[in-house]
């Protein structure tokens, strides 16, 4: 074919042609430029498609946690006849902001900007997120006018990354319908087990609070010293992925607690918000 098409044995032949410094720099620069063009173009061209995928994935996920459990499917009936409705909640008072558009709210951005967020004192910052948005969009699932479920976004630090997900609660604002992890950067094959249905499937049916209103839901490995009625509030951790599981447990506790959706869930449970 060409002078370079030698046999396999003679392999590593003498170096390529005359290598002057100028030529080396020119060729290397040219290759780098061409490659960076290729990478930039592909990233820019494909970004809208990827964004759309992420949006669809989030929606599919909300629908999925609502239909996964057979018991729940009975409760919800055909999810297609249910209406999904996004509303904005003001966290401190737990009231719905009628004048705010949920679609216009960028959760990541509003948690970062000083005017739309607040700082969390370290001792209360169970989810280790430092700042928290004042307004958060939640999803109401209604069927024939009755509230069947509320889906709230939750996030927090796991072992090495921020874990994001959605928590679906039944109309009593206390029974977990499902938990889905949508985004994380935990160790693949170890911490990433938190996204497996085998683990997220442990959550449906668990209760957040006991009859006295005490927040009891928790994730743990060791259950020797548990109270007799603990099973309702306990989710088993995954051995090897303790930090990631604890991270999820802490973020659930934080987001349903007083600094999270606590006031809002109180109003839903009390029948104030339907």
């Amino acid at each position: 074919m060409s002078e370079h098409a030698t046999t396999g044995a003679s392999g590593r032949g003498p170096p390529s042609p005359r290598s002057t410094t100028l030529r080396t720099i020119t060729v290397t620069l040219f290759v780098c430029l061409a490659c960076s063009m290729l990478v930039s173009i592909s990233t820019v061209v494909l970004r809208p498609i990827q964004r759309e995928n992420q949006r669809q994935a989030r929606e599919a996920q909300i629908a999925a946690i609502l239909t996964r459990e057979p018991a729940l499917r009975e409760l919800l009936g055909d999810v297609n006849t249910a209406t999904l409705e996004s509303r904005v909640v003001e966290l401190v008072s737990g009231t719905i902001m009628e004048d705010m558009d949920a679609a216009a709210l960028d959760p990541v951005r509003s948690a970062r900007e000083p005017e739309s967020s607040r700082e969390l004192p370290a001792e209360r910052d169970l989810a280790r997120i430092q700042r928290q948005a004042r307004h958060v969009a939640v999803t109401f699932v209604r069927r024939e006018g009755t509230l069947h479920a509320i889906v709230v976004p939750i996030y927090g630090r796991g072992y090495g990354s921020i874990i994001r997900g959605s928590l679906a609660l039944a109309g009593d604002a206390n029974t977990i319908i499902g938990l889905a992890i949508s985004e994380h950067g935990e160790t693949p094959g170890i911490g990433s087990e938190i996204t497996e249905p085998e683990w997220t499937g442990l959550w449906p049916g668990k209760k957040l609070r006991d009859d006295k209103g005490q927040l009891r839901i928790h994730v743990a490995l060791d259950e020797t010293s548990a109270a007799a009625d603990d099973a309702e509030f306990h989710v088993d951790g995954i051995s090897g992925a303790t930090k990631s599981c604890d991270g999820v447990g802490n973020m659930v506790r934080f987001w349903v607690g007083e600094d999270g959706f606590g006031p809002f869930l109180g109003r839903v449970g009390g029948g104030e918000i339907r």
């Binding site: 390529s16 290598s19 030529r23 080396t24 290729l38």
Partner: peptide, 22 residues
């Protein structure tokens, strides 16, 4: 034929990295 010998690894890895990103 044109990849300069002294920087061949740089050039190779640049090409490979670009392909991987794409």
């Amino acid at each position: 034929g044109v990849i300069p010998h002294p920087t061949r690894l740089v050039v190779q890895i640049t090409i490979i990295a670009s392909m991987v990103i794409v």
